[in-house]
C-alpha cells in the first residue's frame, strides 16, 4: 500500500474526506455516535424494543447489528482493509465470516436444546 493510496470515501461514497487524517476523525465521530446510541438504549431500555424477535429481544438484535457496524468501520478504516487488495481482504474476512456464525449457530442451538431438557425434564436443578 502506497503512502497516499488511501480510499477516502466512506458510506459507499456518500461521505468523502479530503485527507486520511480527516477520514480518521470522521470515523471516530461515527463510532462515538454509535456507541452513544448503544449506551443510551442500554440505559433507557425502551418498552417497544423489548418485544421478542427471533427468540431474542429486539433490542439485543439492535445491539448486535450496531456492534457489527462498529467492527466493520474499525477493520475497514483503522486497520486499512479498505485499502488492501481484494485477495487479502477476502482471505482475512471470509474465513471469519463463515466460521464465526457457523460456530455460534450450532452451539446456541445445542444450548437451547439443553435448556429445554433441563426445563422440562424430571431432574430438579433448583434444590
Amino acid at each position: 500500500m502506497a503512502a497516499e493510496g488511501h480510499k477516502l470515501a466512506i458510506f459507499r461514497g456518500l461521505l468523502k474526506f479530503k485527507s486520511n487524517q480527516q477520514k480518521i476523525w470522521g470515523v471516530l465521530i461515527f463510532l462515538s455516535i454509535v456507541t452513544t446510541i448503544e449506551v443510551a438504549l442500554g440505559i433507557i431500555k425502551p418498552e417497544i424494543l423489548m418485544v421478542p424477535f427471533l427468540r431474542m429481544k429486539l433490542l439485543n438484535w439492535i445491539f448486535i447489528i450496531l456492534t457489527i457496524v462498529k467492527a466493520y468501520y474499525i477493520a475497514w478504516d483503522f486497520m486499512h482493509i479498505r485499502d488492501e487488495t481484494s485477495g487479502l481482504k477476502n482471505s482475512i474476512v471470509l474465513p471469519l465470516l463463515i466460521l464465526i456464525p457457523y460456530l455460534a449457530f450450532i452451539l446456541i442451538i445445542e444450548a437451547d436444546y439443553i435448556f429445554d431438557v433441563m426445563d422440562t425434564g424430571f431432574m430438579s436443578w433448583n434444590f
Binding site: I92, L96, I100, L103, L107, I108
Partner: peptide, 22 residues
C-alpha cells in the same frame, strides 16, 4: 485471524452457557 477465532470460541461458549441458563 487466528486470535479472532480464539475469542470467538470464548464468546460463543459464553453464549452457550447463557442460552443454557436463559
Amino acid at each position: 485471524v487466528s486470535d479472532a477465532l480464539t475469542f470467538t470460541g470464548f464468546l460463543v461458549s459464553y453464549g452457550f452457557s447463557r442460552f443454557k441458563n436463559i
